[in-house]
Design a protein around this nucleic acid. Structure first.
Length: 778
DNA sequence: ATCCATTAGTTTTTT
DNA sequence: ACTAATGGAT
């Protein structure tokens, strides 16, 4: 019966079979954490625990789905079905649907995403007549979000002189009032933002003992995955729910805590033993995922962090290849290297593109990769996870706003999106008037529109008719929604509102792609209804909307199953593994990010991020950095990331070609990327940190490659003597290839000085002065 | 109310 | 470099 236990090593088995009481599983990267969690749940069920009494909180909904499936194979699918698994947000959203009425929320409350929240904050700031330069809506929202994550309600804020003082010092004395208004407006709109889903759950559990008792009794065994990334609000929920039975099992790895920026508190995992009594500790230290070189390389870096729990990750696996480090001139060369390397591996090792991932610090780094992969020379299929997610596109949000509105007409942000989309002659001044009236009568805008006669609102007859038509339309949709499933409603709404017809009319490529996206949304809704029906679950529109609001980008399913290279941020890659991993953009100020180098703890988080990235790899990891990169539209010099040299050199291999291998082919090309700034070429090794330097930057050696000597040593009027730039803006210059042109602007200095020149023959070009064959004419 | 030109933010990560 | 938001003109 317990045969599945044979698939576990000793420490894994201990963690699986230990039944009651608080326990923490400290699970190193690749140590079979998911396996332990799934087996543990299956084991509990085999030992007689009802699936109904188990709550398992995961980091993504995808993880929950997969885990449920795996448990189903052990204990039977029908049993596994009763398990409650999901993210904090989705689990407690569902509880709030049935219990939120205690707090005055309707069961059909809508969920505001960050964009909705920012828009609401902006309108509040505007209404209050505050300076939007001082009260930046995103910053204000960030502050409110951190209040909520720490369970500081408006009342608690006003009772805390320190917070008030801090906001005064920051020239934002009205913070409390904005916070108050924001909470009121969300409440009135029957909506919750992401933080509310946790904060309101806490309020529910602390203010309504009967509700608390009900869920304490229901969730007799609670498991929390990725515990290192829980915030204070989540900690308190778990603490409250597990208080009666104390059967709380948390799993995590402090070395992989990477969400402090959104309130995650690494102290939750570090202090677990203090927060619960009689904690049993389990450690999973054997890595099954990666080669020894990768494990040791990762260990040697994470060692530099001071804040961490005591553990030693090791592996029985082969040494494998060393971690390869590649330097390129530019981000395009970096992308080309990655493309070539992937194609080589596909050919030589017969791997599939789906065995490969490219990881990066920021979403903007995908551009170069995409350009190169799409180029006919390479033609590599790829899929990007994250970035501007599908559900954040304007046309999708607009379409969804209609659906949100007919579920919950009080949803103010949804209403504002669609009241004049497609254009129906209800402009911003009308909306402003309605908004003022709504605040005055303490009603939602929709309620005001439905009762225009009962207000003293000053609108002319034409506008009133338009508003009435709009309200009638929404109410009409609402009635349709009562008898139709999610897809039928959405299809009906799209047709009635003529959203697609409108977009087709403009005929631009953007319009076409928007239409396609809306079609895709309809397909997704169709799929959703079919799948839910098959599973015998809720296929209503309301449920689809909740799914859409809380879906992570990993949840999206592949359109076709042809193998593709996966592109994603390192954050998104947590928990995933790939045979071949390319980490790109390993440069100071990019990774570690320039925003995260001010404090030790920020830098340590960046280092953990690097640790996460490296430990995704099973067979082979490549670390790439470029010497120049476009950032904010400008070409900037880059230094290799400190993380590269923090790896013990026993485990790495520098594979950038020797300088003599550089070919002098494209130097006179007008394409900046084709040219090699010869005095910037860095040589592999001697990378040493200067200990006295406050911001330690790896030092690199400069040396001119021999085959470029001619160019550098032959100062002719054409090239090198312009190096220190005698060119000034306004000069008329002559280029060997482009002819005469006027210098429009200069940027950068020394080796990287570039000029923007308008040539009579080819228009405006940006040239690196040290290569451009320029002669100053006047 | 709508259109077009200018401006601001973006590139740190996301439920 | 690119996009979305803003603001003035019509």
């Amino acid at each position: 019966m317990d045969k599945y236990l044979d698939n576990l090593n000793e420490s894994q088995r201990e963690a699986v079979v230990h039944k009651d009481g608080p326990m923490i599983i400290i699970a190193g990267a690749g140590s079979g954490k998911t396996r332990v969690l799934t087996y543990r749940i299956a084991h509990l069920m085999n030992k007689g625990v009802d699936a109904f009494n188990i709550l398992s909180l995961t980091f993504t909904n995808k993880a929950a789905r997969e885990m449920k499936e795996r448990i189903g194979t052990v204990v039977g699918t029908s049993e596994a079905k009763n398990l409650w698994m999901g993210t904090f947000h989705s689990v407690f959203a569902r509880i709030l649907r049935s219990e939120g009425h205690h707090l005055g929320f309707p069961s059909n409350f809508t969920i505001y995403d960050s964009q909705d929240s920012v828009r609401l904050i902006s309108s509040i700031i505007k209404e209050m007549g505050l300076d939007k330069e001082i009260y930046k809506s995103k910053q204000v929202l960030g502050r409110i979000s951190s209040f909520k994550n720490s369970l500081i309600t408006v009342k608690a804020y006003y009772n805390n002189p320190d917070l008030i003082e801090a906001d005064k010092m920051a020239q934002r004395p009205k913070m409390g009032e904005i916070y108050q208004r924001y909470v009121d407006r969300c409440f009135k709109a029957g909506s919750m933002d992401f933080d509310d889903l946790l904060l309101r759950t806490n309020q529910l559990l602390s203010q309504y003992p009967a509700v608390l008792a009900k869920y304490q009794d229901r969730f007799r065994y609670i498991l929390v995955d990725e515990y290192q990334d829980t915030n204070h609000s989540q900690y308190l929920i778990v603490k409250a729910l597990s208080d009666r039975f104390q059967n709380i099992c948390v799993v995590g790895d402090d070395s992989q805590s990477i969400y402090a920026f959104r309130g995650a508190n690494i102290q939750n995992i570090l202090n677990f033993q203090k927060n619960y009594d009689n904690v049993k500790i389990f450690k999973l230290e054997q890595n099954y995922r990666s080669s020894n070189n990768i494990v040791e390389a990762a260990n040697s870096v994470i060692e530099k962090n001071k804040t961490k729990l005591d553990k030693e990750v090791w592996t029985d696996n082969n040494d494998g290849e060393r971690v390869k480090i590649m330097r390129t001139i530019t981000e395009v060369k970096e992308a080309e290297f990655v493309a070539n390397s992937i194609l080589d591996h596909v050919k030589e090792n017969e791997i599939s593109l789906s065995d490969v991932a490219i990881l990066y610090r920021t979403n903007s780094q995908t551009r170069a990769i995409e350009d190169v992969f799409r180029h006919r020379n390479y033609n590599i299929d790829y899929v990007i996870y994250g970035g501007l997610s599908f559900y954040q596109r304007k046309e999708i949000k607009d379409t969804l706003a209609y659906l949100r509105l007919l579920i919950n007409p009080n949803d103010e942000e949804a209403l504002k999106r669609v009241i004049n989309y497609p254009l129906r002659g209800i402009g911003s001044s009308t909306v402003d008037k309605l908004s003022v009236a709504a605040n005055h009568y303490n009603k939602s805008i929709f309620e005001i529109i439905c009762n225009l006669g009962a207000t003293d609102i000053n609108l002319n007859a034409g506008v009133k008719t338009k508003l009435n038509n709009f309200a009638t339309m929404i109410q009409h949709f609402k009635i349709e929604a009562e008898t139709k499933n999610a897809f039928e409603v959405a299809d009906f709404v799209v047709k009635q509102t003529r959203i697609i017809k409108d977009l087709e009319k403009d005929g631009t490529p953007e319009g076409v792609s928007k239409v396609e996206n809306i079609q895709e949304l309809l397909n997704a809704i169709k799929n959703f209804t079919v799948e839910q029906k098959e599973k015998g679950e809720d296929d209503s529109l309301a449920f689809f909307l909740e799914d859409a609001a809380l879906a992570s980008d990993l949840d999206k399913e592949a359109k076709d199953d042809s193998p593709k290279v996966s592109l994603m941020t390192i954050h998104m890659s947590k928990g995933l593994e790939y045979s071949y991993v390319y980490i790109i953009g390993l440069e100071e100020n990019l990774f570690p990010s320039a925003m995260s180098m001010n404090t030790r703890s920020e830098l340590e988080e960046e280092r953990r991020l690097f640790y996460v990235a490296l430990t995704r790899a099973e067979k082979q990891a490549y670390l790439c950095y470029a010497q120049m990169r476009y950032r904010w539209g400008k070409l900037v010099d880059c230094e290799p990331s400190r993380f590269i040299q923090e790896i013990d050199e026993k485990f790495v291999e520098h594979i950038a070609p020797q300088v003599t291998e550089f070919k002098q082919t494209k130097f006179l090309n007008d394409d900046i990327f084709g040219s090699v700034p010869q005095n910037k070429i860095r040589f592999k090794k001697p990378i040493q940190r200067t200990p006295t330097n406050k911001k330690p930057v790896p030092k690199v050696e400069f040396q001119a490659p021999k085959n470029l000597k001619k160019v550098t040593s032959k100062p002719t009027t054409a090239s090198a003597n312009l190096f220190d730039s005698k060119v000034t803006v306004g000069n008329i210059v002559e280029h060997t290839k482009f002819g005469k042109g006027e210098v429009l602007s200069l940027e950068g200095s020394a080796a990287n000085q570039k000029a923007e020149i308008r040539f009579a023959s080819v228009g405006v070009k940006k040239l690196l002065l040290q290569f451009a064959k320029l002669k100053i004419i006047s």
